[in-house]
Design a protein around this nucleic acid. Structure first.
Lengths: 121, 121
DNA sequence: TTAGTATCTGCGTATGCATGCAGATACTAA
DNA sequence: TTAGTATCTGCATGCATACGCAGATACTAA
């Protein structure tokens, strides 16, 4: 494969950093996180069911799914009028689970923003 | 015990999803990713050095560092006039590395648009 | 004084959400 | 069979908000 910039162990190329930022940005939305978690549980779901699960309008959920689809995080399968969405792999879930772990860790340590400076009178 | 929203679903509580979204949002910026990677490589760095490494103004880097500090992802140590920044743990790096892996995976599988607007093929 | 860092403000851009609408498909009645 | 209707999905628009960046300012330590 294209192993020209295979420096995942060292400092990854800055171009790859932008890609990673895009990936993290995709998963930085609560609605999309819920979509990923819902698909992790139910394997295959149409837009309507996902919209109800995450508590958003179907049209909005469709937009979110379009993004996840563009990033190859979900795949689709047509079934009548419905389009069943499914996770492409476990990478997205792994990322979300890691983020949740980090969030719980931060909460456990007390997430009070420590001001390094004298705040303000 | 207090019955959370974890009634029938084994998924993380929805409140935690918002926290995870904030964590991922923190890491969804290329500059902050570079900061995390730089600190992973050099262990301890002042604002000026980080600013030069990531190619941004020190004031902007300081703002990014303030965010990472609020999220307990970095800790500070004063040394003279400089403030040395250091990663709190490896969680942030793990998240970034996972994202980079996912990005490379997506690239290997096809195309991931740097910007989410496809030019009407 | 100088050097280093932190915070504030304005500007431009990006994002999420709700609304509305259009195309596609399934179903029912005659 | 055809005609009509309902449902589902996807796309475009407008609005409000958040974000990143650059510049200027304030504060601290040597």
């Amino acid at each position: 494969m294209h192993a020209d910039t295979n420096d995942a162990r060292r400092q990854p190329s800055w171009e790859c950093v932008d890609l990673a930022a895009e990936v993290l940005s995709l998963l930085s939305d609560p609605t999309r996180i819920r979509i990923v978690l819902a698909l992790h549980h139910d394997e295959e779901l149409p837009v309507n069911a996902l919209a109800e699960l995450v508590g958003k309008k179907p049209s909005g959920v469709s937009q979110h799914l379009a993004r996840l689809r563009m990033a190859r995080m979900v795949t689709t399968r047509q079934e009548g009028t419905s389009v069943l969405y499914r996770l492409t792999d476990e990478h997205a879930v792994a990322l979300v689970v890691e983020a949740i772990r980090q969030a719980e860790h931060a909460v456990a340590n007390g997430q009070i923003p420590p001001h390094h400076h004298t705040p303000r009178s």
